[in-house]
Design a protein around this nucleic acid. Sequence first.
DNA 1: CACCCACTATACCGATCTGTATAGTCTACG
DNA 2: CGTAGACTATACAGATCGGTATAGTGGGTG
Lengths: 191, 191
Amino acid sequence: MTPAAGRALEAAGKLFYERGIHAVGVDLIAAEAGVTKKTLYDRFGSKEQLVVEYLADRDERWRAFLTRWLEELEARDAEPDAAARILAVFDASRAWTAEHSTKGCSMVNAHAEISDPSHPAHPIITGQKRWMLDLFTRLAGEVDQGRAEELGRSLMLLHEGALVAHGLQIFDDPVAEAGRRARELLHVHGR
Amino acid sequence: MTPAAGRALEAAGKLFYERGIHAVGVDLIAAEAGVTKKTLYDRFGSKEQLVVEYLADRDERWRAFLTRWLEELEARDAEPDAAARILAVFDASRAWTAEHSTKGCSMVNAHAEISDPSHPAHPIITGQKRWMLDLFTRLAGEVDQGRAEELGRSLMLLHEGALVAHGLQIFDDPVAEAGRRARELLHVHGR
DNA sequence: CACCCACTATACCGATCTGTATAGTCTACG
DNA sequence: CGTAGACTATACAGATCGGTATAGTGGGTG
């Protein structure tokens, strides 16, 4: 990734997320990044590809962030129980949204603007959600093997709801609220 | 509302919801509705106003649908308890999404495309969410007065999460799943 | 019959959209 | 020193954007 390409992707990400994908033109992205359209098209080929790389980048960053967060938990607490790891997911999400996200989930927002299921960005969006559901389900299985899927879905609903509520700013700190609710859920089901 | 205006609003609603607001031009709306752009601008004045009326219409329909659903519960069961009324909200949402909505919540999706908080559509979006939160909180208060707000928020998170999950089609019938989870929540808190 | 109003049809405005072309500058490397 | 590649600057093509103007049609009402 050349320096200009990096600046372009960064500017595109910021603008796409804050204003929406269709509302942002490539001229604005180029201007904001201090890059010419020529360079932009030499590196990315099309706006659609730029959108794809924006979402792929955001997806990768979130997964890395969450993975690292969970690894750090493992480093602090030698043998954290499953409930602690589930709650750590909500903690990570809270830290992430506080820093990177004031308009909700970029995947959900992008999905609102992409109608065609054959759009190359589509598998990235659904892929991240499936990954999160799998993660929740796997962790839930360590709490109550028999109800792993059910519990995983519940955690997924709370988490997605919290991201939406955070974006719409309906009430304060919904991700923390979702975390507390997850804790209750685990107390009921676990042990 | 003249006949042509009605057709235009209907076509605009369908297109805005399915393809996104910025992705749909007024020429397409006019063509789809069998209406000229002249008529469209005579009736609505601007695309922005058309967007506002689309959201206001959708908001009003949903509130009327839910209100009627709860009234019918009251008619069947003379004195339904609060838990039954809360679960009826999820039932209504399930019926609504099955019929009107395959891409998630139109308010959330519109919010993804509207960055400016001073946009006239903004209060409609936040208004509906606030209305839902108030409704959940009020009903929750009849279950456990002391934890009305906390319980109301939890129900809100589950409900919003279910709408997102429905739109992304992550797993089957997430609204029903959210309803079952709400039932559990009420059993823990209630009585 | 005359009038009004919602409507259609069509052509156009300026602005902006994605995408491309040409020409030239800077820097790192062999 | 010379070359290659990443870059800037600028201009433009073709399409579409939101929005407007003009002219004419059809049905209902006084």
